[in-house]
Amino acid sequence: MSAREQILQRLRERRDGPVPEVPASLTTSMVRDWSAAEKLDRFQQLMESVHGEVHRTSATDWIDTLADVLEKRGARNLLIPRLHDIGAQILASDHPGLPELLHYDAPIEDWRPTLFNDVDAAVTSTRGAIAETGTLIVWPTADEPRLMSLVPPVHIAILEADQIFSTFQEAIALQNWASRMPTNALLVSGPSKTADIEQTLAYGVHGPKELIVIVVGAD
């Protein structure tokens, strides 16, 4: 008998008989009733409390903010999506303040050392945010691969102001996650950090040292 069959058999032929059925609990202690402004405020406050940076911008001036943020950090280049609208807008803007623009358009195997050593910043879209915990919802795609928001030391995330959900539960329900999960879905709440050395916080231990959220349509 395979290990699989042995394990399942032990679980099915329980000495105490079937485990008493447990009805799904109706408790809903997670419902929040926040206005759009409250959600944005709360998101910003919590994101900043974990060392994230939040900029409120309009639909037209967000690229100025992006250029500004990059310039302050002396970024030599910026990894952008090719197909997503934010990538298209960045390219179309031809903004003089932006550094060299790069695309993640080859498999990682082809350019691993460059991505790990030479890319200073990446900008990605988000699928919204969660107010309750100050969290970004990031679903990597072929256009915005998984390592894009992880390897460069600065991650800039673009958030549409009207895409902030109250809770994780609400996002799962309204975006119907259960019907098809992507290869990888992420919740991101701040830059990478650790407290493994004597409970002292240090940022950028493995992932980005900085997380910058540009909220578009928050004017």
Binding site: L46, V50, Y104, D105, A106, P107, I108, E132, T133, G134, T135, T141, A142, P145, R146, L147, M181, P182, T183, N184, A185, L186, L187, V188, S189, G190, P191, S192, K193, A195, G207
Partner: peptide, 24 residues
């Protein structure tokens, strides 16, 4: 565990790399 509202990352993995995807 640590008194955090949420951890920095919550990573949900459902598949290996799909055709056309550049990493994973």
């Amino acid at each position: 565990a640590t008194g955090q509202h949420i951890t920095t990352y919550f990573n949900m993995i459902s598949r290996p790399r799909q055709p056309g995807e550049q990493d994973g």
